[in-house]
Amino acid sequence: MSSEIVLQVSNLTKVYGHEFDLRGKKFGQRVIGAQDVSFTVKKGEIFGFLGPNGAGKTTTMRAILDYLKIQTGVVTIFGLDHHNERLKIRKRIGYVPGDMALFENYTGEEILEYFGKFRPIDPDFLAVLRANFRVKLKKKIKSLSKGNRQQVGLIASLASKPDFLILDEPTSGLDPLMTANFHKILKTLKKQGSTIFLSSHNLAEVQAICDRVGIIKEGKIILVESVEVLKNKFLQKVKIKFDSSSLPDPSEIEQLKTVISVERIHENTFSLKIGEGIGELIKCLAKYEVKRFTCEDASLEEIFLQYYQ
């Protein structure tokens, strides 16, 4: 991964609707889609964008693509302003919207041909895509299942081997085998220097392929961190089995700064979720007779839930 920045979002704010006062009465409604969102995506990385429905993921993506007018902030892609130089940018990007829709009366081949007229197709990479996706491109879109349509959309959007890919929940509708193949393709693209920005609900997917993640909550970015650091630094699951004669008071453990939660799962067994700094816990446990101590990294899903609770 290079330090060159492909996408830079600074203080992006998008508010939907208008609100105005008329003789003391308020009319209209303002809904904040994204507020003061800032993050960067570096060249050659896969950046995961996480958040539940309505958190502001799609708003941010559409604002980046200049589909939405932003109230404040600056967005640059390849160092170019996303609004003033959108045509230059669009020559080098690929976009897969959530719930991708294609022309119903076209076959996959016709869609590839049509899209290829706007962004030239890389024949070698198209061959890779054809080998990994098993959809019949000679069939009309309207005769395909949701998953197969998604595959055609992915092939069509990726066939130009874009320098920067923006994917909004790209694997929705794909079966596990196709999802795995798609992940392989993304990793191949990454190896060849492409940058990928993807939003997903599938945390296992983000954990498997992303280098860094940004978590958005109620329109605000609450965290941007590398997946590895996040897993190691922020949450670990600890299971401790004490000798029956040496049981601690759970409140004593709970009071430790590093401890997020304590659950007594058996008479002498405790399950803990801890944040950064396990040393404090170990010092505390030294006073007791510990029979078993296991520690494992929490999954991204658990970290994500932790942030949302």
Binding site: K91, Y95, P97, D99, M100, A101, L102, E104
Partner: peptide, 14 residues
């Protein structure tokens, strides 16, 4: 309505 505009707008055409 059919949402095909979403992809089309991402192409380099004014």
């Amino acid at each position: 309505d059919k949402k095909t505009i979403d992809v089309m707008l991402s192409f380099p055409i004014p």
